[in-house]
Design a protein around this nucleic acid. Sequence first.
DNA 1: TTCCCCGCCTCTGTATACCGAAGGCCCGCG
DNA 2: CGCGGGCCTTCGGTATACAGAGGCGGGGAA
Lengths: 221, 221
Amino acid sequence: MRASDRAYDVLKEDILQWRLVPGTVLGETEQSERLGISRTPLREAITRLAAEGLVDTQRGRAGVVTDVSPANLPELFELREALETQAARLAARRRDAATFEQLREDFLSAPASLVDGASGYYELVARLDAAIDVAIANPFLLASLAGLRNHLARVRRLAQDNPSRLAESVSEHLLIVQAILDRDEMLAAQATAVHLRKSLANLLDAVATGDAVSNSTKGTP
Amino acid sequence: MRASDRAYDVLKEDILQWRLVPGTVLGETEQSERLGISRTPLREAITRLAAEGLVDTQRGRAGVVTDVSPANLPELFELREALETQAARLAARRRDAATFEQLREDFLSAPASLVDGASGYYELVARLDAAIDVAIANPFLLASLAGLRNHLARVRRLAQDNPSRLAESVSEHLLIVQAILDRDEMLAAQATAVHLRKSLANLLDAVATGDAVSNSTKGTP
DNA sequence: TTCCCCGCCTCTGTATACCGAAGGCCCGCG
DNA sequence: CGCGGGCCTTCGGTATACAGAGGCGGGGAA
């Protein structure tokens, strides 16, 4: 594997996992030494991260890890609503029945597994996202979704999911999966919109009540 | 200005204007000599173009200008519908009245100027896009829109606008501007969706009837 | 004549050297 | 003692040198 790819992966993970906090200056000399590579491949990694909006680069100053704040939540969800409602609509149109039938069963049995931690549930949601990605079969929409998810991953660390919210979330996802299975494009899109609005409201509420996630206590390997 | 920025601008323009056709291999040595810079800043430019999806890079092979074909039109418009309907909705919510009042007047007088070429009209549409960009005030949505427009600029060269289509397009845009002025979010989004569907249908028809644009005969400076 | 293998050559990937600019610190002057 | 200017240091930007890999062509053998 290329050194620039490794540098990119490491730096991206470091930023997404808040090991490199917003505002951190990524000096070329410093980071190239830390990663054990020379400045040339490091620059390529920084350039790629800048293109994804994870770092800012200004003339004469090396990359600075982009700032994220609760103020970005409404902005991100405006984009998310645009992309994911369309994704749900297209998935309903083109989905593979067997895949979503399986997902439907998994979501039906999800409440039982919620009692012992939510990590399995998050993994299930990720599988739904992946299934939708495959179903929509649109590289351009997919690229925009991928960029969005970078920022969502960072902002999620700002607030913790409310346990009671998870049960709601399961039923909302189930509705989406069912609509996709039924080839009901309109319902799939609207159920997604509903889910996103409620998710945003929950996140904003969690932020407002000071339920912030300490960076050191939470890890998602 | 930095050499890498100049290289990026030149290459991007060359790709968007079809001076570098899809499939062209961008050898590092060759391009750095052509642009009169060394390979280091050129690599940065290629990396940025790759992040935007304008070039493919695979291990051991330099950048290759991404392929575009009429088959991409439906895919692009699926993303475009998602982003631009949301953009119209948000613009209706947050627009500056004076800006769009001016645009309304300009679109009202657009049919008169259509008789002597459409270049002024395209510029007017670009001004509307810019006004919407300002109104939505959302950097994430804006970034996705910018990426989309890169690809749209390329694919437009695949088909020529039908003159009779332009008159229709004016009235569709007028409806969008009026809806934004009226703060009618729903109508703004739906009018945008209508416009996009008709645009796509027109483009697909133009492609199907072999009305392709010769690369050398059309320039957009 | 055709196919396969070997070797050369070019090109990418990485490291490093050089240059210019900007910022910080220190010294001197008011 | 404070402020300003100049010098020095450091870092980003660019060029270039070097190594490894992959591809292509030529030659030999079947």
